[in-house]
Computed example of a mutant assay.
Amino acid sequence: MQLRPIVDTPGISIGYDEANEWLYVDWKGEHDADSSWAACGLMLEILRAFPCAKILNDNSNITRTTMQLSARSLEWVAQMHAAGLRYLAWVLPRQLISRQSTEGVVLDIEAPTVCTFDDLASAFGWLQRQGNAG
């Protein structure tokens, strides 16, 4: 995956994959609620600046997180959809505490289409198979 770098911070890197026409978001290190919301805000800002229908959201490099999905998370997803996001492939952190509740919330999301994965290769393949139409 060759990426055009857009932003690189200690907690998150975002690049544009020109071949696949999507954003790749690589979360890194430890995240708490504050750092997670800051990263989500950055993702929304980047999506608005670099509109695309797909995001490969890779949380596999998170070493520790206390973030859990909430009503605020669903509002953020709706904002991402309004900004043009149609498909989100989400590689879950290896150390996810509340996997079952996370996947339950994801199932309730009507738009964009969100699918969770345990590994980057599966997420990549799924996202490639999704259409680009909004």
Rank of each mutant, 00 (worst) to 15 (best):
Q128G: 14
P93L: 02
R99K: 15
R72I: 08
V105T: 14
L47I: 08
E21L: 11
T113N: 05
S60I: 07
L44E: 11
A123P: 06
N59Q: 15
A121F: 08
V114A: 03
T66A: 09
E45F: 07
I97N: 12
R64L: 15
C40G: 13
S101I: 11
W22Q: 03
L23M: 09
A33S: 12
I46A: 00
F117E: 03
P112E: 03
A19E: 14
V77T: 12
E18T: 13
A53D: 09
V105G: 00
W90N: 14
E30A: 15
Y16I: 04
E30V: 14
G125A: 15
S36F: 09
T65N: 03
T102K: 03
D26Y: 09
T116N: 06
L23G: 03
S101G: 00
G84F: 08
L107G: 00
G84K: 04
L47F: 05
Q100I: 11
A38G: 01
Y16K: 12
E103W: 00
D34G: 05
E30Q: 14
H31D: 08
G84A: 04
A39Y: 01
G15Y: 05
D34S: 12
W90S: 10
E30S: 13
F117P: 05
E21R: 14
L69V: 10
C52A: 07
V106Q: 00
D17N: 15
L56P: 01
D26V: 06
N59F: 10
D26M: 11
G41A: 03
G104M: 13
G15Q: 06
T116K: 02
E103T: 11
D58K: 04
S60L: 05
G29A: 04
S70C: 07
T63W: 10
E21H: 14
P51K: 07
K28G: 03
T102C: 08
W126E: 02
L23S: 04
F124Q: 15
T65S: 15
C115Y: 12
P93D: 06
W22E: 02
V91T: 07
N59C: 15
S98V: 10
E21I: 09
M67Q: 13
D32A: 08
E21S: 14
E110Q: 12
M43D: 10
N20E: 15
S122Y: 01
A53L: 01
G41R: 01
M67N: 08
T102G: 02
A49G: 09
V25S: 07
S60W: 07
L96E: 13
A38P: 04
M80T: 12
V106L: 13
L96W: 08
L88H: 10
V91S: 03
T116Q: 03
L42R: 09
A89E: 06
A71K: 12
I46M: 07
A123T: 08
Y24T: 11
T66V: 06
P112M: 09
Q100V: 13
S35Y: 01
M43F: 04
Y24N: 07
W90R: 14
V105E: 03
A71G: 10
A19R: 13
A83R: 07
R48N: 11
W37I: 02
Y24I: 05
E103Q: 13
D118Y: 10
